[in-house]
């Protein structure tokens, strides 16, 4: 899976094995707090929360009820985003009154998705308790919201992206930290170097002999220079610090 345009991979936060262990640990924590797991309702938030809820459910001793939540109709930015995103549908298969509901999502960021999910859930009834399970908490909350079960807490810059990739949707199992910037261009670097000396040879044949000494002169100057800038570089960073 390639990162969205304008972003590149910075760090792999979880590989397949670690993701698997993390989900098992989260399931164990849920089970510890709610031994009667068959009574639970796990609600995955579209898109990545839905398969994560399924996986957590599969790891619990007694399978809970699993639902899905599309918070699109409850977003607080519908007046500012155009076009409106397509809706994918909510499915809450049981009455939620009096139940313990665990909302499952991949990444906890601003908390606005969770706010929308809470509003939507409340429209289905009055649960006994609502808890939140996220695979990754990356900080930068804009609302007073916290998770009850966290797979991993990561320190991120606000403009970075945490991308959860799951095999069914993305063909791989991993969690990546993406940073803004062009895709890395490693291969083109050696390519332009040999082209440079070739170019003048191809353009003109005879004046090449005349130009050659002119070229050599600046090359020699450059070779002589490096000692001084190197000395400057060493002092410059020290001043800044």
């Amino acid at each position: 899976m390639t990162p969205p345009r304008g972003f590149r991979e910075r760090l792999c936060l979880m590989d397949a094995a670690r993701l698997d262990r993390t989900l098992s640990r989260m399931a164990a924590e849920i089970c510890e707090r709610h031994p009667d797991t068959a009574r639970l309702l796990l609600v995955g938030v579209h898109t990545r929360g839905v398969p994560l809820a399924e996986r957590l459910a599969a790891r619990l001793p007694a399978r809970p009820v699993v639902g899905s939540l599309d918070i699109t109709l409850y977003r607080d930015d519908l007046t500012t985003i155009a076009p409106h995103p397509l809706t994918r549908g909510t499915a809450i298969p049981v009455a939620i009154d009096g139940r313990v509901v665990i909302v499952v999502d991949d990444v906890l960021f601003t908390g606005r998705t969770v706010r929308a999910a809470l509003d939507e859930l409340v429209d289905f009834g009055r649960p006994a308790r609502i808890e939140l399970a996220v695979l990754c908490d990356r900080g930068h909350r804009e609302l007073p919201i916290r998770a009850d079960y966290v797979g991993e807490t990561v320190t991120t810059a606000r403009e970075e992206i945490v991308e959860v990739r799951l095999s069914a949707q993305d063909g791989e199992e991993s969690v990546w930290l993406l940073e803004p910037g062009p895709a890395p261009v490693a291969p083109p670097q050696p390519a332009p170097a040999p082209e440079l000396p070739k170019a003048p040879q191809l353009v003109v044949h005879r004046p090449a002999a005349g130009k050659a000494p002119v070229k050599k002169a600046p090359a020699a100057k450059k070779a002589a220079r490096p000692a001084r800038p190197a000395a400057r570089k060493k002092t410059a960073p020290r001043r800044k610090r």
Binding site: L73, L78, T87, T90, D123
Partner: peptide, 19 residues
């Protein structure tokens, strides 16, 4: 497809979304 998801809203106990 969007209409299909809207049908689900019509089947809820509270038939109102703040969209």
């Amino acid at each position: 497809d969007t209409a299909e998801t809207m049908r689900e809203v019509l089947g809820r106990p509270i038939k109102k979304v703040p969209t």
